[in-house]
Structures are given as C-alpha cells and as structure tokens.
C-alpha cells in the first residue's frame, strides 16, 4: 500500500531528477586548441596616467601598480613597456631597467599576476620579447632567456 509519505518522497525525487536533468542540458561547450600567441611583441609608451595600449591588438591596461612593485612608490614610469602574449594566453610584461618579467593571467577586465621571473640583477638594458612557442624568448643585448608562465625554462 503506497502511503502519502511515499508519494511525497516520490515527488521530491522526481523534482530532484528534473533539476539535475535541466542543469545537465545547460549551455556547455569548450573550444580547444586555442593559440593565443601574439606574433610580435607590443612596445607601448605609458601616458601620464600609466596607461599603455596596443591599438592594433585592441588591448590597454594600466602599469602604475606594476611599476610600484618593480621600482617602489614614487618612482617614475618607464619610457616604454614591452609585452607579449604566449600561446597559452599569459601576458609577459617588462620594461627597460626592470629586473623582472611579470606574468599575468587574463581575467574579466583584469590581468592577474601569476609569476614574477627574476632575469637580471642590474636591470634589463634593452629588453625585447620574441614569440618562440611554446616559450617566450626574452633577449637583452646578447643574452637570451626562455620563459614560460612558470618561470625560466632553462
């Protein structure tokens, strides 16, 4: 004999199953084999507010906090900032005089620092990024560094 209690339980189970089914049917799609690699680095001059942009690529961000982290509070902005995006979508940013390369992950309207790669004790003289997937090559004069999002590769 099916009691009212059993009927209520059956109803609850049905509702739960419907919910699971509905969630399973929601939009879910992942595109793979994405190559974010920027073929050539961007070289941008910060404006008075510390904004840099690459009109061609359609990206702009503010480097003031990055400069404070590298050089300390009150320091002047570098004359140029160099950045490049790696195949896996991370941005590598540095500037002449910097000792580090900063690695950022893209977030919604933000770049999140994920790694600081120490490359030069005295500061980079004339840095330039090259895309050498899967690495990012950083050259400074006749010195070469191979970078990944996790640090130095060599």
């Amino acid at each position: 004999m099916i009691s009212m209690k059993h009927l209520r339980l059956l109803g609850n189970i049905s509702a739960a199953m419907l919910l699971v089914f509905a969630v399973a049917c929601g939009p879910s799609l992942t595109l793979t084999d994405v190559d974010y690699a920027q073929p050539i680095e961007s070289v941008a001059t910060p404006d008075q507010n510390g904004n840099v942009q690459d009109v061609r690529l359609g990206i702009s961000f503010n480097v003031t906090d990055l400069n404070v982290k590298e050089r300390g509070e009150g320091s002047s902005l570098p004359e140029e900032v160099r950045f490049i995006r790696s195949i896996d979508g991370y941005y590598f940013v540095t500037a002449p005089g910097y000792r580090n390369v900063y690695v950022f992950k893209v977030k919604e309207r933000a770049l999140d620092l994920t790694e600081i790669i120490r490359v030069s004790g005295a500061g980079l003289a004339n840095p330039a990024f090259n895309q050498r997937s899967p690495y990012i090559q950083l050259v400074d004069g006749d010195v070469e560094y191979r970078l990944t999002k996790d640090g130095l590769a060599n």
């Binding site: 330039a128 050259v139 006749d142 070469e144």
Partner: peptide, 13 residues
C-alpha cells in the same frame, strides 16, 4: 651569428 640569433622580432619589423 650571436647577434642575429638574438635579434628582436619587433626590430626586424
């Protein structure tokens, strides 16, 4: 060779 090896792509462009 060394210089050529480490030339900046940006500079090439």
């Amino acid at each position: 060779q060394v210089q050529a090896q480490f030339q900046s792509d940006f500079q090439i462009k």
